[in-house]
């Protein structure tokens, strides 16, 4: 159709601008930060910067950073766990038990809050969890003799806020693979005498693994890099690897240290993605 020369130009013209943009805004910055993480100080204001490993060494030397990394990973596990426990049955309910005309409306309602501002949604939990807030008032209306309930500025508050943020992801990804299951398979198993539990364990669960898996990744990875949720809902209990990185850039101004911590976080993310790769590749459309 087109001669090879024009074809090359068309391709370059079509993809060039987008990828040039991505290079300037994402790939070069990541490289720059990798470089910075190996400097002693940020090379601004006439300061001499030397190449060193001292910021990575600091991570190994100070228990503080390792403890916080564990905390972030544990937070990721807790949030992911609750998202599965709450979200998977919901996806199953939507895909298999809700009549068609309700399904789309309900799905939309589940996804809708997810598209409103994340910050605002986290903030809205302060109205519920604080002493004298919705939860406290409601519980004490029923049980007036109880102590005031003040969950705000605790670890649990962070978990609740993050589950609220990521639950729609989990429901959506699980729903997509659950509703793709051929109903005939289930009918066949039923006809052959399989109980509900067996059908779930042998057919529904295995076939929905890709969606579950995608949901886990889409929850776990952002959660271990979160900081704003911990700041708003965790208060003093909310120190995480993410908040320490934020501090390095906005309060302490030790950019190389922040860069090194960011790359340790990125390395963790990449390790997780690499471990997930065999499963991901099998289920990605067109390889």
């Amino acid at each position: 159709m087109l001669n090879p020369r024009r074809r090359t130009w068309a391709l370059l013209g079509l993809t060039g601008p987008a990828y040039l943009w991505l290079t300037i805004a994402v790939f070069l910055p990541l490289s720059a930060m990798l470089y910075f993480s190996f400097l002693t100080v940020a090379p601004f204001g006439g300061r001499e910067a030397a190449v060193s490993l001292k910021h990575y060494q600091a991570f190994l030397d100070r228990d503080f950073y390792q403890v916080l990394t564990w905390r972030s990973l544990k937070l990721g596990l807790h949030v992911t766990f609750w998202c599965i426990v709450i979200g998977y049955p919901a996806a199953l309910a939507l895909a298999r038990y809700v009549p068609g005309r309700w399904r789309e409306a309900l799905l939309l309602m589940v996804v809708l809050p997810f598209w409103s501002n994340a910050l605002v949604r986290v903030f809205s939990w302060t109205m519920v969890l604080r002493e004298g807030g919705v939860l406290d008032s409601a519980v004490r209306m029923v049980f007036p003799w109880l102590e005031p309930i003040d969950v705000l500025f605790t670890y649990d508050a962070i978990v609740i806020g993050l589950v609220h943020s990521f639950l729609p992801y989990m429901i959506l990804t699980c729903y997509v693979s659950l509703q793709a299951i051929d109903g005939a398979l289930i009918e066949a198993a039923r006809t052959l005498g399989a109980s509900g539990l067996v059908v779930f364990r042998r057919i529904i669960l295995p076939l929905s693994v890709p969606g579950l898996f995608a949901g886990v990744l889409l929850t776990f990875v952002p959660v271990i890099g979160s900081f704003m949720e911990a700041r708003i809902l965790g208060g003093r209990a909310g120190t995480l690897l993410g908040t320490v990185i934020e501090d390095q850039f906005t309060v302490v101004f030790n950019w190389p240290r922040g860069a090194a911590l960011s790359f340790i976080l990125l390395a963790i993310v990449l390790l997780i993605l690499a471990a997930a790769w065999p499963v991901l590749r099998r289920h990605l459309p067109n390889g």
């Binding site: 994402v26 990541l30 090379p43 976080l265 990125l266």
Partner: peptide
């Protein structure tokens, strides 16, 4: 395939990392 794969980092890497990287680079 490579170009398609390159679409993933901007949406999978935590924003904290991308945001601080942009700050470093743009300032620099």
């Amino acid at each position: 395939t490579l170009l398609r794969l390159l679409l993933f980092p901007p949406i999978t890497i935590p924003w904290l990392i991308i945001g601080t990287a942009m700050l470093v680079m743009f300032f620099w």
